[in-house]
């Protein structure tokens, strides 16, 4: 799709906003509709759109495959790590109340971190799966 000028221009204009919207959904998910799962998928969709319009090679330059694969594990480890941190701070596993002095603040912090972990893993899995499918087709 290298020669479709309209597609290229619109994608270039749109992708930053898609990423911005994904971040908004990620961190505003406590107050409005949204959260890690949705944000991860939207974030992944931005990269997939980029790969569709500008070609897989350019997309792989923006998001190298080994980095994406590493992020799959990082998200899950962040989630599990929050649980371990709660354990070390004297609470039960995944009991975020122990993360801060005030249980409510701890809960809020824990939810934020856990959602971040969910978002990272979901986004990385979506990007990695699409890249492998696209790479296979060449």
């Amino acid at each position: 799709m290298r020669h479709h000028v309209i597609l290229r221009v619109i994608a270039k204009l749109g992708i930053p906003f898609i990423v911005l919207f994904a971040l908004y959904v990620q961190f505003h998910g406590d107050f409005g509709p949204g959260g890690g799962f949705q944000a991860g998928v939207i974030f992944g969709a931005a990269f997939i759109l980029y790969a569709l319009i500008f070609g897989l090679d350019n997309a792989l330059e923006a998001a190298p495959m080994n980095v994406v694969v590493a992020f799959i594990a990082i998200g899950l480890l962040l989630f599990a790590g929050v649980g371990v941190a709660a354990l070390l701070l004297g609470g039960n596993y995944l009991d975020y109340g122990a993360l801060a002095d005030d249980p409510v603040a701890g809960q809020h912090l824990g939810i934020l971190l856990v959602e971040l972990g969910v978002g990272i893993t979901v986004a990385a899995v979506m990007i990695a799966v699409f890249f492998t499918f696209a790479d296979r087709g060449r």
Partner: peptide, 28 residues
């Protein structure tokens, strides 16, 4: 208890944290 107005997020991440961890492992 959690200070999060979106009940779905609160249940997802806090009350059913184990469940979500399991689901994330499935995706992984």
């Amino acid at each position: 208890e959690t200070g999060v107005p979106n009940v779905v997020t609160a249940v997802l991440a806090s009350y059913r944290g184990y469940d979500t961890l399991g689901e994330l492992t499935v995706i992984f």
